[in-house]
Amino acid sequence: MSIPCLGRVHDRRAVAWESSGVSERRRLPRRYLVVAAFVFVVAASERFGGPLTVDALRGAVSSGTEAAADQLRDRNARGEIHLTFDDGPTPGYTAEILELLDRYDAEAVFFPIGEQVEPNAALLERAVDDGHRLGNHTWAHDRLADLTAWDFDAAVGRTQIAVERATGTVPTCLRPPEGVIDDAAVDMAAAEGLTVEMWTVDPLDWQTDDPDAIARRVIDGAEDGAVVLLHDGGGGRDATVDALGTILRELGRDGYRFTVLPGC
C-alpha cells in the first residue's frame, strides 16, 4: 500500500525520483505522519466537541467542501445585474420569462402597465410569489411631463391601486415610459413613496426580432450594478424571450448574479 506524503501523489513518483538520481526528496518519515495524524484528530475533536467518529470526519469534509465552494463562488463573482421588464404583463411572454428566471434562480423587477394589471393578475401574483418585485409603469404608458396633479394621479396613482388590489403589494419604484419625466413629476412620485428608476443597458428589444443581437447588447454592457431594460409586453416578444435564456446562461456562467433593483 502506498502512503501519501508531502509533495507526492503516489509511490510511483518516489520510484521515478530514485531512478533519476534525485536524492533530495525523500519519503516523509512515518513518525511525522503519525504526529500529523494525531494533531488532526485532536483539532477535529475540539472542532466538533467530541471524539473523531466517522460521522464527524464526514462532517469535517462536508463542511470544508461547502466552505471551499462558498469561497470559490465569492472569488468568481463578477457582481450583480438587475433585470427589469416593462409594458406587461402579457399572457404567454410574461409566463415564459418567469419560467426562465426560475430556472436560472434569477430575480427581476416587472413594471406593469396599469390597464393590463387586472386582466393578468395571476401572472403578477406568480411573479410576487417567485420573489420578484413589481414597479409602476403608469396606467397607459403615459408621458410623465407637463402633468397636473390630477393627471399624475390618473396615470400613476391609479396604477398603484390596481397593483395593490391584484397582488397585495404596493410598488415603491416608478419607471417613466420612454424615460421621460420632469422635475414636477419626480416630486409627485416622491410624495407617493416612489423612487424613479431608469436603466443603464438598453438592448432595444422592442426594435428588433433578432434574439442574438439583443443578447449581445446586454452581455457587452454587463457590469456590476447594470440595470437592463427589457420588455414583456407592448408587442411580439419572442426575440426577448429567446435572448433572455442566452443572457441568463452566459452571464451566469461569467459569475454574475441577477438580483432585484435596490430601489424596488
Score class of each variant (00 low, 15 high):
L134F: 04
D183W: 12
R31P: 05
E96A: 15
D87K: 02
G234A: 07
V227P: 13
D87I: 03
F152G: 08
G79R: 02
A44L: 09
V61T: 07
C5F: 08
A149E: 07
Q71L: 13
I97T: 10
P89S: 01
R165I: 10
D130N: 07
I113G: 02
L33D: 02
A36F: 07
P112I: 03
V35I: 11
Y104G: 00
I81G: 04
G236W: 07
Y93H: 02
G7Q: 03
W206L: 02
L33P: 10
L230V: 08
E18Q: 13
G114V: 03
D105I: 02
E164F: 11
R31I: 07
R249M: 13
D182A: 00
D238W: 15
G234H: 08
D142S: 08
Q71V: 06
A191R: 05
S20Y: 01
G245R: 05
F40S: 06
V109M: 01
V156N: 02
A162I: 06
D205M: 07
R249K: 15
G179P: 01
A121R: 12
S45L: 12
A140R: 06
G179E: 00
R143P: 05
V170N: 09
I181L: 02
I97G: 04
D74H: 14
D238Y: 15
A106D: 03
F258D: 01
N120E: 13
T94I: 00
A226G: 10
G21C: 00
D86L: 04
G49K: 00
D210A: 08
A154Y: 09
L134Y: 07
E24S: 10
P211E: 09
H141A: 10
R8H: 09
P177D: 00
A14L: 07
C173H: 01
Q71G: 13
D210G: 06
P51W: 11
G168Y: 07
E96P: 14
P4F: 14
Q207D: 14
P51N: 05
D187M: 05
V218E: 01
R217M: 07
R217N: 08
L33K: 15
V227W: 15
V227N: 06
A222D: 05
D102K: 11
D242V: 13
A69P: 15
E250A: 13
L72E: 11
C173I: 01
G64H: 04
D254N: 06
G88A: 02
E125Q: 10
G114W: 01
P91H: 05
D86A: 14
I219F: 02
S2I: 12
G79W: 08
D187G: 10
I219P: 02
R216D: 14
R25C: 14
P89V: 10
D142C: 09
W17E: 11
A108F: 13
E99L: 09
W17M: 09
F40V: 08
P4Y: 11
A145M: 15
D238L: 14
L98S: 00
R58M: 13
G49I: 04
D220E: 01
A185F: 07
V241P: 11
W199V: 11
P29W: 11
P203K: 11
D209S: 12
R73N: 09
P112D: 00
V227R: 03
E250S: 03
H137M: 05
G135E: 03
G157P: 00
A122I: 04
M198Y: 14
N76T: 15
A95E: 05
S23R: 14
V241Y: 12
T159P: 03
V109R: 00
V180E: 13
A37S: 11
M188C: 14
D153N: 08
A185H: 08
